[in-house]
């Protein structure tokens, strides 16, 4: 039982990372129906920005998070403007291939410029353990979970309470109708990329600190799993991404804890196949009839 609670705490912190990433996938998918394959790479670059600003500017955790988030947010907008915007009218496969191209470019660009080796992330927060009853929570875990909840609350506020958030929701329901109401969809789409990429940057810094190692290939597997989390929760639905992220994090930790850690990834991919089989619209998704 104590072991289980311990695993649940670990799962919650891993799940926070997936949830942050899945939010980016789900927002972009909700608004332009594109699987943004480059999202995992943005998270990787976020981790590297965190690494460089902590090492060379000597800043603490909060400034590193903010700097990294602003860098990836701008990067996300640039990618959207340069690579995805010209493809707004073309087929979905073309956009998908471009997204893969961008992901490939960022990954190999980083390998080319910083080298493929694994680096250890500077520890700005001393990793002390809090003992509550008979289980332990590391300071890092608390930090991850708290940061994630603050960011999610912020996102929820932006989407639900601000004018821009209203515009985002309008564009994701019907982009043309939104345009007729005086909303500039291009601006809204860029803003979506801005938000999603900022969250990915934050996730990158947090994961760098949590696992203490970063490399240019680190974005691939978490990116994929976060996408699965988004599908699990219902792609395009913001609370679904959070739910899916936590679910995938918990499942992964429980399988490594109680079973074979080698099959962990296979199980996560298996979940994807099962969810596509039984409920393709996801846990929170509603079945939508396609209009002809």
């Amino acid at each position: 039982m104590e072991n289980l609670i311990q695993q649940l705490i670990n799962g919650l912190s891993l799940g926070s990372i997936y949830a942050l990433l899945a939010l980016g996938y789900t927002m972009v998918y909700g608004i332009i129906k594109l699987i943004n394959f480059a999202h995992g790479e943005i998270y990787m670059i976020g981790a590297f920005v965190g690494y460089y600003v902590i090492n060379y500017l000597g800043v603490g955790l909060i400034p590193a998070l903010l700097l990294s988030m602003s860098f990836t947010a701008v990067l996300g907008v640039i990618i959207e403007r340069v690579a995805y915007k010209p493809l707004r009218k073309s087929s979905r496969i073309a956009a998908l291939i471009t997204a893969i191209g961008v992901s490939y470019l960022l990954q190999n660009g980083m390998i080319y410029f910083v080298g493929p080796e694994v680096r250890s992330f500077p520890q700005v927060v001393e990793n002390s353990l809090y003992t509550i009853g008979s289980f332990q929570v590391s300071k890092m875990q608390v930090l991850i979970i708290v940061t994630t909840f603050i960011l999610m609350a912020g996102l929820q506020f932006i989407i639900q309470k601000t004018k821009m958030g209203k515009a985002m929701r309008a564009v994701s329901i019907d982009s043309q109708a939104a345009e007729l109401m005086g909303i500039n969809p291009d601006l809204v789409i860029s803003f979506t990329f801005f938000l999603g990429s900022a969250l990915a940057g934050a996730a990158g810094v947090l994961v760098g600190m949590y696992y203490n190692s970063i490399n240019p290939m680190m974005g691939y597997a978490p990116g994929l799993k976060a996408f699965i989390a988004a599908v699990l929760g219902g792609i395009g639905i913001v609370p679904g991404a959070v739910l899916g992220g936590f679910a995938i994090g918990l499942i992964e930790v429980l399988i490594s804890g109680y079973g074979n850690s080698m099959v962990r990834d296979a199980v996560v991919y298996g979940i994807l196949i099962v969810i596509l089989l039984v409920r393709p619209s996801g846990i929170l998704g509603k079945h939508a009839k396609e209009k002809v």
Partner: peptide
């Protein structure tokens, strides 16, 4: 080496944008 991959990635994106 990996510069080749960068070229391929850029080519992939530009083909999709300019001559899909």
């Amino acid at each position: 080496g990996s510069f080749r991959m960068i070229l391929y990635a850029i080519a992939l994106i530009s083909i999709m944008i300019f001559k899909p």
